[in-house]
Amino acid sequence: MRKTDILDVVSRKLAPFMFLFGLYLVSHGDLSPGGGFQGGVVIASGVILLAMAKGSAAAAALLPVRKLAVTEAVAFGLILAVGLAGVLMGAGFLADVLYDGTLLPIVRTPFVFILNLLIGLKVGAGASLICLHLFAQE
C-alpha cells in the first residue's frame, strides 16, 4: 500500500500541537477540566500519531525509549515521595504539605499542580512506551 504525503505532513504539523495541548491539560488540571492523567494520555497520543505516520523509529528519535523509561520510573518514585511527604510531616498520605492556610484570590493549589505534573509525566511516558514497544515488535 502506498503512503501519501498528506498523512506525513498533517501528522508532523499536528503532533506539536497535541503535545502543547497535553501540557496545557496537565498544567491547568487544578483549575479547569483536565489533569495529569488526561494530559498524559494526550501527550502519548501525539507520540502514537508520529509513530503511526512516520514509523516508530522516528518517534523514538524524538523521545528515546530509554529516556521515556527513566522518566516513567523517576516520576513514579516522585509521586510516592510526594505522597509520603505528607506522612513524614504528620499530615497524612497525599496531604497538601504546601498549603499554609492562606486563601489566595485565584484558587491555585501548587500541591495539586505538582501532582498533576508528575502524573502527566508518568502517564505520558508510560503510555508512549507501551505503544513504542508494541510498534517495535511488529
Partner: peptide
C-alpha cells in the same frame, strides 16, 4: 481496634 485512614485527609 480498627484503624481507619482517609487518603489525603
Amino acid at each position: 481496634a480498627a484503624f481507619t485512614y482517609s487518603l489525603g485527609g
